[in-house]
Design a binder for these strands. Structure first.
Lengths: 116, 116
DNA sequence: CAGTATCCCCTGCGATACTG
DNA sequence: CAGTATCGCAGGGGATACTG
């Protein structure tokens, strides 16, 4: 594995993981404490959320700050690199917002066939 | 599953699949015959390429044209919706191109630890 | 509150072989 | 050339219980 076949390929490897794009995008709006993040990213389990945060941290996308208080207080925010990545994610978010009904309709159809 | 939690969530469902973003992005540059597409998307198998193309087709992102010739000639291109999605993918591609070395370094580190 | 530690499933993906 | 048809598995992710 020397390099990547193209720029998109490189990006995809960084955001590989079911919840990573959502994590990154939520963190753009505000630094978040662990609990807030978990509520924002609906459906994710502790195990997976932590795991993906650790990967993003070691990839230089997010930074974890432990305030060493009791009760524990930790927050996550984006690095400069992470913010640039989140910005690149914004058009995807806008696309989804604009075409949400269309997309929802198509997926509803697909589910109908699966049931039938 | 009534809707999506946000725009990004909706988009992610459409591009879910290891090769879909690459497929969409390659198709933006030109309509492609099946064989060309397979060469462009390095490493994908026939089975998976066809499968993901069919999903993209039923999602209204790509259109398949069968010229009903012998030998077979089929090509794939983007719908208007697909082009708009590909455009939204462009910033991700640029991000990867700009930060490719940085990303490559981080992944090399990770591989080193896995080997050790 | 912010995590760890296990167990386990499932499905997405790859490899191979075959066809009109 | 452009696919289908099977087989098989790795590993990413979910559920649950527990902890400093």
């Amino acid at each position: 594995m020397p390099g990547f076949s193209c720029g998109l390929d490189a990006t995809l490897k960084v955001i590989a993981g079911k919840w990573k794009p959502l994590i990154i995008y939520f963190l753009l709006e505000a630094p978040n404490r662990y609990g807030e993040l978990k509520r924002a990213v609906r459906g994710v389990s502790d195990k997976v959320l932590i795991q993906q945060l650790k990967e993003l941290e070691s990839d230089g996308i997010v930074v974890r700050t432990d305030y060493r208080e009791v009760p524990p207080r930790v927050d996550y925010s984006l690095t400069a690199l992470g913010r640039s990545l989140a910005d690149a994610l914004a058009p995807l978010s806008n696309w989804g917002a604009e075409h949400m009904e269309e997309v929802a309709r198509v997926f509803a159809e697909r589910d109908k066939w699966r049931r039938g």
